[in-house]
C-alpha cells in the first residue's frame, strides 16, 4: 500500500487561515470606505500603499529566511497588517511614513520574532507606536473631516501631497485659501481643552464636534462596529475580547463621567472616538498576540479597556489603543499561564 498513512481525524473544516484573513479585511472595508469619505483619497492611498509594501516586505523576508514564499504570503496575514497600518496613518502623511511603518511591522515585529504565530506584539500597533514616537508631527496631522472643513482634496492632489512632499497647506492655498485643512482629532481637542481649563461641555462646542461627537470619527467608528459585528456573525472572531474591551472602557468612562462630568469624557464619546471600534474588533482580536482561553480573553480585553481609559484620561497621549494593546500583548502569556480552563475530570484549580 503506497498511500500516505494519515493520522485521525481524516476530515477538516474548510476554514483556512487565508480565508479568515481575507474575510477580516472584507469586514474592515466599510470602515475604510467611511474613512475615505471623511478624509479623502489620502486614506485609501495610504491603505493600498501599506498593503503593497507589506506584501513586498513579507515576500522579501520570506525569501531571505529561505521559507516557501507563496504559501505563507497567500495566508494574507501580511496584507491585513498592511491594511491596519494604513488606516492608522493620517490620510495625507508622506509616503515614507507608511513605508517605514509597514517595513518595521513586517520585518521587525513579525519576522524577527519568528514569523506568523510567533510574534509577541501586534505588528500594526507596534509600527504605529514607533511612527507616533518617531514622527509625531506627521502622525498627528489629520485633515479635518469632511463636514468640519470644506476640504475636497482631489485624487491627484492627494497623490502629490503623499508622494511629492507638497504640504497640504500649499495645495489648499491656491485652491480655496482656507486654512482649516488640518484639525485635531476629537480626543486631542478635548485633551487640549481640558488642559486649558475648559469643561467637557465647553470643549464639545468646538468645531471638531457635532452633537457631542467628533465629526466624522463617530461614523468611522460606527462603520468599524458594523464590520466587527459582521465578523462575529461570520464567526471570524469570538465576542470575548471585543466585548471585554468595550465593556471595560464603557464602565471606566461611566465611573469617571459620573464622578466628574466636567473633567471626564462621557462613555459614548469614548466608545465612538478615535480608534475604539477598529481596535476592539480588528486589532485586539489578533489571535496571535492575544490570550487564548475564554477567561483569559475576557481578562485581556478588560485590561485593554482599562489601560485605554487610563491613558486617555491621565496620560500624555489623546488616544491610547496602540499602547494599551501592546501592554496587554505583553501580559497575554502571563494571562494564559495563570488562567487555564478546568479540564474535564479535574477539580477547579486556582
Amino acid at each position: 500500500m503506497a498511500f500516505k498513512l494519515a493520522s485521525s481525524p481524516h476530515i477538516n473544516t474548510s476554514v483556512q487561515t487565508s480565508t479568515i484573513m481575507l474575510k477580516v479585511m472584507a469586514c474592515a472595508l466599510p470602515g475604510v470606505m467611511v474613512q475615505c469619505y471623511f478624509f479623502g483619497w489620502g486614506a485609501i492611498i495610504q491603505v493600498l500603499l501599506s498593503i503593497a509594501v507589506a506584501m513586498a516586505t513579507e515576500a522579501a523576508v520570506l525569501s531571505l529566511r529561505k521559507r516557501p514564499v507563496w504559501p505563507t504570503l497567500s495566508d494574507n496575514s501580511a496584507a491585513l497588517t498592511g491594511l491596519l497600518v494604513g488606516v492608522a496613518i493620517p490620510a495625507l502623511a508622506p509616503w515614507w511614513v507608511s513605508v517605514i511603518g509597514v517595513v518595521f511591522a513586517i520585518l521587525v515585529v513579525k519576522h524577527l520574532y519568528g514569523g506568523l504565530g510567533n510574534n509577541i506584539f501586534n505588528p500594526a500597533m507596534a509600527a504605529y507606536v514607533m511612527l507616533l514616537i518617531s514622527f509625531p508631527l506627521q502622525m498627528t496631522t489629520w485633515v479635518a473631516p469632511a463636514g468640519a472643513a470644506l476640504n475636497d482634496v482631489s485624487l491627484l492632489a492627494s497623490l502629490q501631497i503623499i508622494f511629492q512632499g507638497v504640504s497640504p497647506a500649499e495645495v489648499l492655498a491656491y485652491r480655496a485659501g482656507f486654512d482649516g485643512m488640518s484639525m485635531a482629532t476629537p480626543l486631542d481637542a478635548i485633551k487640549t481643552s481640558l488642559s486649558t481649563g475648559l469643561t467637557i461641555n465647553e470643549a464639545l462646542e468646538k468645531p471638531t464636534f457635532e452633537n457631542g461627537f467628533g465629526i466624522g470619527w463617530v461614523w468611522i467608528n460606527v462603520a468599524y462596529l458594523f464590520g466587527g459585528l459582521c465578523m462575529l456573525k461570520l464567526k471570524l472572531i469570538r465576542w470575548h475580547i471585543s466585548g471585554a474591551v468595550i465593556f471595560s472602557l464603557f464602565v471606566c468612562a461611566s465611573i469617571g463621567y459620573l464622578l466628574s462630568p466636567d473633567t471626564h469624557t462621557g462613555p459614548l464619546l469614548h466608545l465612538f472616538s478615535g480608534a475604539t471600534m477598529i481596535a476592539a474588533f480588528f486589532i485586539a482580536t489578533d489571535p496571535v498576540t492575544a490570550a487564548t482561553s475564554v477567561k483569559g480573553r475576557l481578562l485581556f480585553g478588560a485590561l485593554i479597556g482599562v489601560l485605554v481609559y487610563s491613558i486617555r484620561s491621565f496620560g500624555g497621549y489623546p488616544d491610547a489603543f496602540a499602547f494599551a494593546i501592546l501592554l496587554a500583548n505583553l501580559c497575554a502569556p502571563f494571562i494564559d499561564y495563570y488562567v487555564k480552563p478546568r479540564a474535564y475530570g479535574h477539580r477547579a484549580s486556582r
Binding site: 504559501p71 487564548t292 475564554v294
Partner: peptide, 30 residues
C-alpha cells in the same frame, strides 16, 4: 473528494479555536 490528502501544516496563529472545540476542556494549542 471526501477526504483530500492532508494539507501542509501551517504555522499556528493561536486562534484558540481548538480550545473552544475541545470537549475535555484542554488547551490544545499549549
Amino acid at each position: 473528494s471526501e477526504m483530500a490528502p492532508s494539507a501542509p501544516e501551517m504555522p499556528c496563529i493561536r486562534c484558540g479555536e481548538c480550545a473552544q472545540a475541545c470537549p475535555a476542556g484542554l488547551l490544545p494549542q499549549q
